[in-house]
Design a binder for these strands. Structure first.
Lengths: 105, 105
DNA sequence: CAAACACATAAGCACGTGCTTATGTGTTTG
DNA sequence: CAAACACATAAGCACGTGCTTATGTGTTTG
């Protein structure tokens, strides 16, 4: 059940931060990801392993560096999950999303 | 941080099943939700409390029954979260979602 | 109004999770 | 090639989580 891995991976706020970094910036290696994050090297390594197993990120080994980037496969499962339920009450959700968007600004 | 409550609430497979029931069927009370679910009454009550605190469901007390239904507020946060990242690689995600949809059938 | 009912809550327990320190593995540098 | 580097992994620990049994609270039924 990979869906369960994905939801569990995203349940941790540190991992969501890492995912957000990789989603909004070019590929980074583990050390670069740590900058400005108050997290030890082993902790980062463990979080990256969880995200990798959930297919939310994927690695690209280059010598002694390991570069990470978002893996659309895992994210697609969440996107699909949202789409599945959105169809049940599209108007209510879209109205709410507009409200949330306004709040951001 | 309500976003964290929501992701943590959805990280449990039993709670996702409950949410799915409420999303795809009319409002139900706690006992009706239990039918066909091999879950004790206290366990169900505790799961419903977590979902309620995450604003994924809301309650409507009617005498000694408590009816539950999906609360668009919590779901909207997830939908918004997905939308936020989808914008970074729309073509890749949409292609993948089409693939996943095919796999369902 | 006493019993049954629908649900909530408390306490205890087994197991999961995220961190730490220590150390291992493979690669590059000087 | 020895040291430095980038990262992974192991073991241990504190704390979180989801269940159980027991019991509490409010409502309805006969």
């Amino acid at each position: 059940m990979i869906e369960n891995h994905i939801f569990k991976a995203l349940a941790d706020p540190t991992r969501r931060t890492i995912f957000e970094k990789l989603a909004t910036a070019p590929r980074m290696n583990a050390s670069t990801l740590r900058t400005g994050m108050e997290i030890s090297q082993p902790a980062m390594s463990q979080h990256l392993a969880v995200l990798r197993q959930a297919k939310l990120i994927r690695e690209d080994r280059q010598g002694r560096f390991v570069y990470y980037e978002v893996d659309p496969e895992g994210f697609g499962v969440i996107a699909q999950w949202v789409t599945k339920y959105r169809t049940y009450w599209p108007e209510r959700i879209d109205a709410l999303k507009a409200t949330l968007k306004d709040m951001d600004q």
